[in-house]
């Protein structure tokens, strides 16, 4: 019998610990598939974050070096400058990337550091228990914005990808989601494109992925997926924010 679906070989045979409906498992799998398809397992280095994906090295069968909270872009810079012919990516959540690591993220993009960032935006600090994130949208309840985020007191959420698109050193930035089969396929293509552009030396590439956190959103997985479409995307619109590659629009 022909096997038509299996575990990517760049993922270990370890079951994910993530909650039901969490986007991390899907995103891990997509990255694994892209690594396999582009034959990168022997030349890619991942930098996992502090956050829910901190244990990513238990799942990826590739070299991985942990970064402390927010510093992944700096650690990846160190890797890439020593090993310029390897593919280096960071895997970061919204708190990691857009709060504590804002400086590292912006300056890696501004330098045009030839690395790829997978930016998983679920609007909360998942691992620490659902506190307000820099990307928590107005009105959203979290454990540290229990009355809903208000601009007067908690301030506005940050659209970091749009900011990074302004940086001259960034080459490709796209925001996708993993809430529907179509969006999942688009996400995979975006990840593959980002890695390809890195291999071609385009400089900083980033894929922001809107991802559900049913546990901390206090919604079931189906409702979470709908909430991404109905609410989250109005604050964080999907699509290509920047593309210097010369590819045709939306071509991957």
């Amino acid at each position: 019998m022909k096997k038509v679906f299996g575990r990517p070989k760049s993922l270990k045979a370890t079951p994910f610990h993530y909650c039901p409906g969490c986007g991390h498992s899907i995103i891990h799998r997509l990255i694994g598939e892209v690594i396999d398809e582009m034959n990168l397992q022997e030349k890619i280095i991942g930098v996992p974050p502090a956050g829910c994906a901190v244990l990513a090295y238990n799942y990826f069968d590739i070299d991985m070096g942990e970064a402390s909270h927010g510093r992944a872009a700096a650690v990846a810079t160190g890797f890439k400058r020593v090993l310029p012919d390897r593919i280096v990516f960071t895997y970061q959540g919204d708190g990691d990337m857009a709060a504590i690591g804002t400086a590292e993220s912006i300056h890696a993009a501004a330098r045009g550091e030839n690395i790829t960032t997978i930016f998983v935006n679920n609007g909360v600090y998942g691992m620490t228990g659902g506190q307000m994130a820099p990307t928590t949208i107005l009105g959203q309840n979290t454990t540290t914005s229990p009355r809903g985020r208000k601009e007067k007191t908690e301030g506005f959420p940050i659209n970091l990808s749009e900011m990074l698109a302004i940086a001259r050193g960034s080459s490709y930035i796209e925001r996708t989601a993993v809430n529907t089969p179509a969006n999942i396929l688009k996400t995979k293509k975006a990840i593959a494109k980002a890695f390809r552009l890195q291999m071609q030396g385009y400089g900083f590439t980033l894929v922001e992925i809107l991802s559900a956190c049913p546990t901390n959103w206090k919604m079931d997985p189906v409702k979470s997926s709908k909430w991404i479409d109905e609410v989250m995307t109005s604050h964080f619109p999907l699509g290509v924010l920047k593309d210097n590659s010369g590819d045709k629009k939306d071509a991957h």
Binding site: A74, V75, T77, R81
Partner: peptide, 9 residues
């Protein structure tokens, strides 16, 4: 942290 990355490499 760049030092950390370069040292890991």
């Amino acid at each position: 942290h760049m030092v950390i990355g370069a040292s890991m490499a």
